[in-house]
Design a protein around this nucleic acid. Structure first.
Length: 488
RNA sequence: CGGGGCGUAGCGCAGCCCGGUUAGCGCACCUGGUUUGGGACCAGGGGGUCCCAAGUUCGAAUCUUGGUGCCCCGACCA
């Protein structure tokens, strides 16, 4: 581990790349900007995915699956949507290869050109709404509450593991409603689901807000988001929920008969969260010694390390403890590898972020004791083996809470109210974090501030209070503060 | 697409400026031994088209030219 690189150092970016690699989360792919998610990283994603999935089902949604390939013409049916995504689409033009007649390898068979090119989905609104046209005829078919777990491809210029990759895994919910009010309620409900997930499971505090028109999803009438703050003071958009109005229904002619026998266009929402959340998790909690994972999501919650190496007595105690903890639904690993010494294992499990380590040694065991070490605080204590089950159970809850509290304190300490442009620039460069400031509401001003400072309006917080003020750039009147930050 | 940097063992790197034994170091790997409460130690061993091509030279990892691949920073974005 590169000790010289700290989460708050100039080289935060290098630290991040380092930790992703050393904690065994991902590996480079031979294809530009794509990533291999290694077993530990994927186990983490599965835990996140499973929990989100439960929360979606608890709010009445079901899963389905739609095609990876989308006819090019579908994309252009909604004007704003195509404008937003056209420049980052991977396109399939042919369906066959053949041996190169000039020797060597294989070439694209020019005879096998597709009549209509297909794009690899960058998001699925178009193909799903094209399908919904056939599924929705009557108000009795509504609401239609569907989620899809899938991979998408966006040909971004610059990539970074988890935070921005060419291909990424995500879920995208696509719902159809009879009324505007119901669709808006759904949009906000899913925003709450994301916020709850981030805070209660990832221990990552977030701010719920609305995007400015400039930052809206391509094709949405209103975009809501949760914004988190990373340890280097940059913001991360961690999930979005869009109110799509009737835009897609009109583009794909999805109409239904209401109970008055009148034809109407349906109202839509879409919402998504991706493997980017893994990046957010890393950058919210980890330290110089590696990853720190919240107990609720950690693939391994408890590791038991025999000290200095397994013996029949230690094995017996450890396996019994493992069994008891597993019976309580705790994910436990007893590391019986006798080719590695304890110090090596300690460092290794700290690197991959296991929340609690239990050390069982012959000396301690003779006194009926074990050593319990916390990853988040790096503290150790000796407890009676007999109390282990209850203690560990409580400890996992404590760690989960403490991690959230610590992250929230950092976040709250990095929200600064600023009333003039000079201070705005200073805070951005020195203290970093979110800046709550007045803005005149125009896209021109937003763009100008971005150009001058690289800071963008992350969101207009839903809980922003009415307050008279003047825009930090133009001095024009404003009635609430918005949150600015430099962002990933 | 601009601006930097780097291609030498599985990984991380030194050597290059100033050409010259058999190309070296750390980690990892294999063998044997001693160890074992915070990343063990000793001894031995295996592993290389020095990114590719052409050129200069008695001689090129090293110099020249041309390719090529990757990484970082910026513009784009979840």
């Amino acid at each position: 581990m590169a000790k010289e690189i700290t989460p708050r150092s100039e080289d935060y970016s290098q630290w991040y790349l380092d930790i992703v690699k050393k904690a065994g989360l991902s590996d480079n792919s031979p294809v530009r900007g794509c990533m291999v998610i290694k077993p530990h990283g994927f186990a983490l994603w599965e835990n996140m995915r499973d929990q989100l999935d439960r929360m979606f089902k608890d709010t009445g949604h079901v899963n389905a699956y739609f095609p990876l390939l989308i006819p090019k013409s579908f994309l252009s049916k909604e004007a704003a949507h195509v404008a937003g995504f056209a420049k980052e689409c991977a396109v399939v033009t042919h369906y066959r290869l053949k041996n190169d007649p000039n020797g060597g390898g294989v070439i694209v068979d020019p005879e096998a050109k597709l009549e209509e090119e297909l794009i690899i989905r960058p998001t699925s609104e178009t193909i799903i709404w094209d399908t919904y046209r056939n599924w929705i005829k009557s108000y009795r078919d509504l609401p239609l509450l569907i989620n899809q777990w899938a991979n998408v491809v966006r040909w971004e210029m610059r990539t970074r593991p988890f935070l921005r990759t060419t291909e990424f895994l995500w879920q995208e919910g696509h719902t159809a409603h009879a009324t505007k009010e119901e669709a808006m309620a759904e949009t906000l409900q899913m925003l709450d689901v994301y916020a709850d997930f981030a805070e209660q499971y990832m221990a990552m505090p977030v701010i719920k807000g609305m995007k400015t028109p400039n930052e809206r999803f391509a094709g949405a009438e209103e975009t809501f988001c949760i914004e988190a703050l990373m340890q280097d003071g940059k913001a991360l958009q961690a999930g979005t929920s869009h109110f799509l109005g009737q835009n897609f229904a009109k583009a794909f002619e999805v109409k239904f008969l209401n109970n008055q026998n009148k034809e109407e266009f349906v109202w839509a929402t879409s919402w998504g969260a991706s493997t980017r959340l893994i990046g957010g998790l890393i950058m919210t909690h980890s330290d110089d010694d590696g990853l720190i994972l919240p107990p609720k999501l950690a693939p391994i919650q408890i590791v038991i390390v025999p000290i200095p190496k397994p013996t029949p007595e230690i094995d017996a105690a450890a396996l019994q403890l493992q069994k008891n903890l597993r019976a309580k639904g705790i994910r436990v690993k007893y590391d019986q590898d006798d080719s590695k010494r304890p110090g090596f294992k300690f460092a290794e499990y700290e690197m991959i972020g296991v929340p609690v380590r239990i050390g069982i040694g012959a000396r301690d065991l003779a006194e009926g004791k074990i050593e319990v070490a916390r990853r988040d605080t790096k503290t150790k204590e000796s407890i009676a083996l007999a109390d282990a089950e209850t203690h560990i159970n409580d400890l996992l809850v404590t760690i989960q809470t403490d991690m959230f509290t610590a992250a929230k304190k950092f976040r709250d300490d990095h929200i600064t109210r600023v009333d003039d442009f000079k201070t705005f620039e200073e805070v951005l460069d020195t203290k970093t974090g979110f800046i709550a400031a007045h803005w005149d509401g125009t896209t021109e001003t937003e763009e100008k501030i971005k150009e001058l400072t690289k800071a963008t309006i992350r969101c207009i917080p839903l809980d922003a209070i009415e307050e008279q003020g003047v825009c930090i750039l133009t001095g024009k009147p404003s009635n609430k503060r918005v949150l600015f930050a430099r962002a990933y």
